[in-house]
Amino acid sequence: METKPVVELKNLSKTIGSKKIIDDLSLSLYPGQITGFLGPNGAGKTTTIRMMVGLMKISGGDVIIDGKSLKDDFEEGLSKVGVIVENPEMYKYMSGYKNLVHFARMHKGVTKERINEIVNQVGLQNRIKEKVSTYSLGMRQRLGLAQALLHRPKFLILDEPTNGLDPAGIREFRNYLRVIAENEGVSVFVSSHMLSEIELMCDRIAIIQNGKLVDIRDVAGADESHYYIEAFPTASAHDLLVAEGFTVEAFKEGFIINAEKTRIPGIIQQMTAQEMQVFTVQSHRKTLEDQFLEMTGGGQIAESHTK
């Protein structure tokens, strides 16, 4: 689509013992885009992410970040990356501010002004001098975000970032990511098992199963017009819809068809003309969960808040 990718995974593989955990994974991530990373438990999401940030060694292939290979030039490659891996574990015995100073020292060119700026951005200015052990989970998440953004990364990797946040916190977090992606052109890569979350947050979704990339698709494109129709007698309703040229799919006691809005009144008219009893005609939105289950063949999902 637009411009050059910020991050490219090239045939990334991870072998532990004789088992291939990640198998030949290739994926490009673009600036300004939020890409969701979905998969059943044990599919290899966390392993992939840990390889991308240097926590695990790459067995095969490479990760290219802003043109720099992690294998050849680890320090340059990772200097453009901000990371939150699961719960951000900070040094609890130090103040939030000292934690940020600590991480700032590990990057080039992070000034005191920048630290203060980011503290204000995540709204921690009143508590930043207090010890992290006194923080609530939400505040720790904010601090986690602050440390990930300190050095103005071009690429932000988040592994299960909303774990343990309350709905308001999740919403705030989501909006914040949007702002960063759009205003600063940061490419964001979010892994999650919370499908509804990913659906609301992301432009694009990559789905992984058994260490292999199953599908990449745009979220907007996934929202086609489906309608649920329930009419009696069922058999003649089915025949009519097929005759009209729709792809018909049985669902509950009726059918789901893929149709444009303008065709719906005509169908209802025909049905009543043929003296069918029409009980329900409603637009049906396939949730990401349905699609996900379709694609992964019903792989176990740990937790779902879709409905």
């Binding site: 680890f74 990371v83 699961e86 040094y91 590990m106």
Partner: peptide, 14 residues
Amino acid sequence: SQGTIKMLLSRPIK
């Protein structure tokens, strides 16, 4: 044991 190792090692430092 405190989990901070992942914050420490996911930095551009060998």
